[in-house]
Computed example of a mutant assay.
Amino acid sequence: MTSAPVSRGHTPLPESQTLHLPRILCLHGGGVTGDVFRAQARSLIKYLPDFRLVFADGPFFCDPGPGIVPVYQDCGPFRRWLRWLPEHPEIDNEAATEEVMYAIETCKREDEGDGPWVGLMGFSQGAKLSSSLLYDQQIRVEKEGKADTDYKFAVLLAGRSPLVSFCEHSKSPACVDAGAISEGFKFDGESPHILKIPTIHVHGLADQGLHLHRKMMNQYHDPKSTTLIEWDGTHRVPIKKTDVEKITTEIYRVAREQGVKV
């Protein structure tokens, strides 16, 4: 593991014009980097000119994820947020949580913008993490009366079950521990942990993990605060205008409903 480098904020506008915009923290998938996710999300960035998107890097090194080679084979070293393979080194839950939070806080602290952090956007493992961080915020407010973050929404691109527990309030058979292997996790009951803060779920209908993405949405998210967007694609970030406009339209709608000034 290592301290994560920082990716700068990105919008279609010149850097000097984005410093005061509301910020969305973007979390890459497993076996990628923040810079690769920025390239994958280039079309989303284009259609979100009123936000500053900031791409963080996960704290742990790993092999490249599925589909990364050969297009991004020279963009390593590749990183992950969580364990999903047995060969990923064992780590206790407290240390895993500290590493993830340190990587995120370092990225946020070193970003040059000063707009409010209003949302999260993640792909694959980053989507699982985004939902889990949002739930951690929610349950801390419920149990402790406050949280260190005030995210208003999350965009979950192909995020699969389950939620990850980042504090004692979410220790449960329904959630995977931060240091555990999440791949193959089984929980078929009714989850007591339901995220009520708005989420936008983007599911590719040709994605082999679609059943796990649907399980994540249905088992851990309140349908009253959930928006579903389905598109005819595999396990990747949409880039076609027709698909991207549907997603960004909903991002603007949800952000405005949550009081974000865009």
Rank of each mutant, 00 (worst) to 15 (best):
M1R: 04
M1N: 06
S3H: 02
L13Q: 10
S16P: 03
Q17D: 14
L19P: 08
H20P: 04
R23M: 15
I24T: 05
R38P: 02
A39V: 15
R42G: 00
P49N: 14
D50L: 06
F51I: 07
A56C: 03
A56Q: 04
P66A: 10
V69C: 10
Y72M: 03
L82A: 08
N93D: 14
E94D: 09
E94R: 12
V100Q: 05
V100A: 10
A103I: 03
A103K: 07
A103F: 06
T106D: 06
E112F: 11
G115I: 14
M121Y: 06
S124D: 01
G126K: 07
Y135T: 03
E142W: 12
E144I: 13
E144C: 09
G145N: 09
Y151N: 02
L157C: 00
L157T: 00
G159A: 00
G159T: 00
S170F: 10
S172H: 15
P173Y: 10
G179M: 13
G179P: 13
L195F: 01
L205K: 02
L205M: 05
G209Y: 14
Q219T: 11
Y220N: 03
D222V: 07
D222T: 09
T227V: 13
E230M: 03
G233K: 14
H235I: 10
H235A: 09
P238H: 00
K241M: 03
K241L: 03
E245F: 05
T248E: 06
A255Q: 07
R256G: 11
V262L: 15
